[in-house]
Design a protein around this nucleic acid. Structure first.
Length: 511
RNA sequence: GCUCCGUUCGUAUAAAGGCAGUACACCUGACUUUCUAUCAGGAAACACGGGUUCGAUUCCCGUACGGAGUACCA
């Protein structure tokens, strides 16, 4: 049995979207499940679409998600280089064998000539005509031209491409790990360009040569590649590599949250949801990422793993390690999976609930730094525990309890009017005075002072607690009131309780 | 158009030739001073038509619908 070697092969044409990350994840999980290697190969054969920074982005996104590379452009490995633009010589030598044995041919047709052929045939009623076994006979290529003519063109450095010679009526079948047997007839296929006129290979050629050269055992990629796999199989045959051809697994696509079609980067902007793992700052466009939206990488990985895969049990929360152990390609579903942001948020919340306090504290510190606030470790730890169960994104950590750090910016007027009434006022003032007398602060004695005050004034929790809460936070919701007071500290609480009545009176007078 | 792939609650999915389960979202209740979290409960699905079968949501064939591909892009 050959060792398992899988590759993630993105092209650096922009930020990697969440579907790409999932492909990388499944590759990673499969490799690690089998004790194999996870390889990054950069498919940068299209010079026109190359985008500066995209390769770094891909690396950073993989790194954020915790997918460690065994081989790749900057980690190295025995099968490099791992950037296709650096492998030209390899492609050129291999394409020559195809030319020599007649499996590929030179084509000198210009774009206009090909276009012309197409429109002519369309006028005759042929639907989407191809450059194939029929039409190539009327084009200018090394099959129709004499050797002398070809030589003349070559000597004059005429532009040419190299095309695969696809013979009709061959059955091309392969076993897809997810979908079972898939069969194509070669008569449907066109003579794919293998080498472009700029001397660089197309995806199909580079892909097959690299997978072979890098001893890739399994090709795990998106469903959009399923159709072209027929061409790839043909190429393996042409090279005589069919017996060692990798196994294929074509993943279902990730669909738009609503409406039709696959998820696109536009969906993110349109619906205010992240479609990218981390933020992308392109020269002309910017996209937000899960990371910046306050998602933990473990949550995103867990969410993504479940978009098209399921362990067959009821367990949903999985560490990367656990995913690795449980993952099977045969458990991947066939149908496209709709992107569900609600579920993503739920996963995130689950991870926030159980994540290490230090992670939350660090994140909070970052947010506080932006507004020039500093607090003790003890305070931050207490705060984080208070708000951990009531946020679904890290980014909300500060916002959720802003009133702990700065003046209340918004009072709930409606509740003030409802609660700031005679008996409540008396009890409130009574409790405030008594609290100021307490020398040692903890949740227990705040609580007993308040309880005693309520009893002494013949009041009730429902009458007074909302008032205390309004005074401290401006609203009637939030963490447990006594824990809130303990975390805020005595001076802070007393100050806010004493100044609040004026604010209340004023707000009521204004309304 | 053609080729290939697919279709189970709103969403992600499970299982089995014989009761369609779980999670998110939704609704109700419990716990709380409140908002969360948590717990308990509820509503909600086999696209359609044939065939095989004692029995089909499951296997087969059609139809519909959805998706991908159909470039000197990957």
């Amino acid at each position: 049995m050959n060792p398992v070697r899988v590759r993630f092969a993105p092209s650096p044409t922009g930020p990697l979207h969440i579907g790409g990350l999932r492909t990388a994840l499944y590759n990673y999980l499969y490799a690690k499940n089998k004790g194999g290697a996870f390889i990054l190969r950069v498919e940068d054969t299209d010079q026109n679409r190359y985008v500066e920074g995209a390769e770094d982005y891909i690396r950073e996104a993989l790194n954020w998600a915790g997918l460690k590379l065994d081989e790749g452009p900057d980690v190295g490995g025995d099968y490099g280089p791992y950037r296709q633009s650096e492998r030209r010589k390899i492609y050129q030598s291999h394409i020559q064998t195809l030319i020599d044995n007649g499996q590929a041919y030179y084509a000198f047709d210009s774009a206009a000539e090909i276009e012309n052929m197409r429109t002519q045939l369309e006028q005759k009623g042929v639907h989407s005509p191809k450059y194939n076994f029929e039409t190539r006979m009327q084009m200018r290529n090394s099959i129709t031209l004499s050797d002398a003519e070809v030589k003349t063109l070559m000597d004059a450095s005429a532009a040419y491409t190299i095309r695969l010679r696809v013979e009709p009526q061959q059955e091309i079948g392969f076993e897809d790990i997810i979908r079972g047997r898939v069969v194509f007839n070669s008569s449907e296929l066109d003579d794919k360009v293998l080498m472009k006129s700029d001397g660089l290979p197309t995806y199909h050629l580079a892909n097959v040569i690299d997978d072979h050269e890098m001893k890739i055992s399994h090709v795990i990629r998106g469903e959009e590649w399923l159709s072209s796999t027929a061409h790839h199989v043909l190429l393996y045959r042409a090279f005589g590599w069919e017996s060692s051809m990798p196994k294929f697994a074509h993943l279902p696509l990730i669909l738009k949250p609503t409406g039709k079609g696959k998820l696109s980067k536009r969906d993110g902007q349109k619906m205010g949801i992240p479609v990218f793992p981390i933020q992308w700052n392109g020269s002309d466009e910017m996209f937000g990422g899960f990371r910046e939206m306050g998602f933990l990488p473990e949550a995103v990985v867990n969410f993504l793993a479940f978009l098209g895969w399921n362990p067959g049990s009821d367990q949903e929360i999985f560490t990367l390690e656990e995913l690795m152990k449980a993952f099977k390609l045969t458990d991947v579903s066939k149908g496209g999976a709709r992107f569900d942001f609600e579920k993503a948020k739920w996963f995130n919340q689950q991870y926030i609930l159980t994540s290490d306090a230090s992670i939350l504290v660090e994140e909070l510190k970052k947010q506080l730094k932006e507004v020039n606030i500093e607090r003790s470790e003890d305070f931050l730890n207490a705060y984080v525990e208070l708000f951990r169960p009531r946020i679904e994104r890290l980014a909300d950590l500060f916002e959720a309890g802003k009133y702990f750090f700065q003046k209340v910016d918004q009072y709930n007027n409606k509740m003030i009017r409802k609660k700031w009434k005679e008996n409540g006022i008396i009890t409130y003032n009574f409790i405030t005075e008594n609290l100021a007398q307490v020398s040692q602060w903890n949740a227990a004695n705040c609580k007993s002072v308040i309880e005693d005050g309520i009893a002494a004034c013949d009041s009730s929790f429902g009458e007074v607690l909302p008032l205390l809460r309004l005074a401290l936070s401006g609203d009637v919701k939030g963490p447990d009131l006594f824990d809130t007071m303990k975390c805020m500290g005595k001076l802070f609480v007393i100050d806010r309780l004493k100044s609040a009545p004026n604010v209340f009176d004023q707000l009521i007078a204004e309304s």
